Simulated scan of single mutants.
Amino acid sequence: MARRLHAGSVIPEFRYDTPYRPQQSFYELLEGEKPVFFVFLRNFGHPITRNYIMRYIETAEELRSARLACVVRTRPHVIANAIPEGAMPYQLICDAEGVLYRFFAVPEESSKLKSYSLEALKILKAAKRQGFSSAKNEPQQLPLTLLVAPKGRVLFAHYGSSLTDLPADCEAMQRVAAELLPGIRPDWL
């Protein structure tokens, strides 16, 4: 059953695939002293996804109060063939079929006017100059950003209203974590 998440929601345990390992435990990923940001993006080959993945790689050291995992609608072998294991400073979760996207009610927008932002237009224009062309009349997968504590407790949830309505970089995630986390811990509510 699809449901939008909010602060206080609890995500049940599930299994996911990474490009390098199948059937990983969601709750095991959440174990530790720091909560995890989950950023739901489009497929790994989409220019906006690539742009944000690169930003997150370049600014990974800025995220000190939390960890990061990006969720992409891509088959694991596609990424495994393109990126060597250990090259990314954060986790990639592959959900090619969109099971998590549907379960967490990650929205799609059929109107480009509603889903595009000036930043999205700039990224897509640059990609078009390099040969990228988007599929006509395809719904636009909007982003979702979550901050999740152990045992699946959602501390923060933001459903994006445009293709680029997500953290600009790891420094932006750090600001959110720094604002939310002081005083939260008793044992993650």
Score class of each variant (00 low, 15 high):
2 A>Q: 13
3 R>K: 11
4 R>M: 15
6 H>W: 11
6 H>V: 14
7 A>Q: 11
7 A>C: 08
16 Y>V: 00
19 P>V: 00
21 R>A: 15
21 R>P: 00
22 P>R: 12
22 P>N: 06
28 E>Q: 15
29 L>M: 14
29 L>Y: 04
29 L>H: 09
30 L>Y: 04
30 L>I: 09
30 L>D: 00
33 E>W: 05
34 K>R: 13
41 L>R: 01
44 F>P: 03
48 I>P: 02
50 R>I: 09
50 R>T: 10
54 M>W: 10
54 M>S: 11
56 Y>P: 06
59 T>F: 02
59 T>A: 06
59 T>S: 15
60 A>M: 05
61 E>L: 14
63 L>D: 04
64 R>N: 13
64 R>H: 13
66 A>I: 08
67 R>D: 04
67 R>A: 06
68 L>F: 03
69 A>E: 00
70 C>E: 08
70 C>R: 02
71 V>M: 01
74 T>L: 03
75 R>M: 09
75 R>C: 07
78 V>H: 05
78 V>Q: 03
80 A>N: 02
80 A>S: 15
83 I>T: 11
87 A>N: 10
88 M>C: 11
90 Y>L: 05
91 Q>M: 12
92 L>K: 03
93 I>T: 00
93 I>Y: 01
94 C>F: 02
94 C>W: 00
95 D>V: 05
98 G>K: 00
98 G>Y: 01
100 L>W: 03
100 L>Q: 03
101 Y>G: 05
101 Y>W: 06
102 R>C: 07
104 F>T: 03
105 A>M: 10
105 A>D: 13
106 V>C: 05
107 P>M: 08
109 E>C: 13
111 S>C: 10
112 K>V: 11
113 L>R: 14
114 K>F: 10
115 S>D: 05
116 Y>I: 01
117 S>C: 11
119 E>G: 07
121 L>A: 09
122 K>C: 12
123 I>L: 08
124 L>E: 06
125 K>I: 11
127 A>L: 08
132 F>D: 06
132 F>H: 02
132 F>P: 01
134 S>P: 04
135 A>W: 04
135 A>R: 15
138 E>N: 14
140 Q>V: 13
141 Q>V: 14
144 L>C: 07
148 V>N: 00
150 P>M: 04
152 G>Y: 04
152 G>D: 01
154 V>H: 06
156 F>G: 01
158 H>I: 04
159 Y>C: 08
159 Y>V: 00
161 S>E: 12
161 S>A: 12
161 S>G: 12
163 L>W: 03
163 L>Q: 09
164 T>Y: 04
165 D>E: 09
166 L>C: 06
167 P>A: 10
168 A>M: 14
170 C>R: 01
172 A>L: 02
172 A>N: 04
175 R>P: 00
175 R>S: 13
176 V>A: 09
176 V>Y: 06
181 L>Y: 08
181 L>R: 08
183 G>D: 11
184 I>R: 07
185 R>D: 11
185 R>L: 13
186 P>F: 09
189 L>C: 11
